[in-house]
Design a binder for these strands. Structure first.
Lengths: 135, 135
DNA sequence: CTTGCACCTATAGTTACTATAGCATGTATA
DNA sequence: TATACATGCTATAGTAACTATAGGTGCAAG
């Protein structure tokens, strides 16, 4: 099997949906390895790097921050993991997401409660501002 | 009715629960006005400023960013608002919180679905990584 | 007298990008 | 042949909302 296809950064951007600056940024912080370069000095990517970038983007979509993303990449790169470990980490992350949801729900409830107390007046006597000022 | 009590920034920090640096930061970005100064140049706050700071902190707790916070402060400062307006803004903000909750719930569902597909194996054949790599 | 405390200013660091300036090179067109 | 355009490059600054640090002042207690 010959060497696979090579993409410029523009093509990688197109294929991954990730803007060029972010790709370079991920390289800078070593989430992506330094790719080959053309004689002109342009970055050349292959399918492996495309897959790695997509993996990173998927984790970001799922709310992993870059540190957690790096952590997972290291584990996968090292090859010394068990499916159990990955599951545990996944559930831990799900829990942090769940905690955020809980916080936001509390906030939503408070906001709706405040809004419901409003007499919908055209005046300046505002129960919302009152409760904002006295809590 | 004599002039009210004056607090140093340390006291204001204690009374409000806001750290000193943040108080100075809010002053720097003009969320808080420049307070009086002692002969030594130390900031001196009064109850009005304490109330204003608490109001800001409350909005921050409720998920308002500084721009939205500033917006509300301007409205209150201007005095030209109706209770209706405030209610509308409150409900709009509640909606953005709700949207965040919706996003996070989607993420949580996906994470739990992935975790549920895991065979809990001690091996390296991991369905979670598979789905992460192929989505 | 010197140690400690509370305050001061100005500046840099954090996260995860995003945008800009200024440059090189290859291709398409006038 | 000249020039414009596209694509790439590096380095640096800006964003949000703080947080932390360095270096300095002045007062009071031991």
């Amino acid at each position: 099997m010959a060497t696979g296809k090579k993409y410029t950064i523009g093509k990688l951007s197109e294929l991954s949906g990730c803007v060029i600056q972010t790709i370079r940024y991920y390289e800078q912080i070593s989430l992506l390895p330094e790719p080959d370069r053309s004689p002109r000095g342009h970055r050349l990517y292959n399918n492996d790097l495309l897959a790695r970038l997509k993996f990173i983007l998927r984790l970001r979509q799922l709310g992993y921050n870059l540190e957690k993303t790096r952590d997972l990449l290291n584990i996968v790169d090292g090859g010394k993991y068990t499916c159990q470990q990955i599951k545990k980490k996944t559930l831990q992350h799900a829990q942090t997401i769940h905690d955020k949801i809980t916080d936001l729900k509390k906030i939503e409830t408070e906001l709706l409660k405040m809004a419901a107390q409003c007499n919908d007046d055209k005046g300046r006597d505002c129960s919302i501002l009152d409760s904002l000022f006295h809590t």
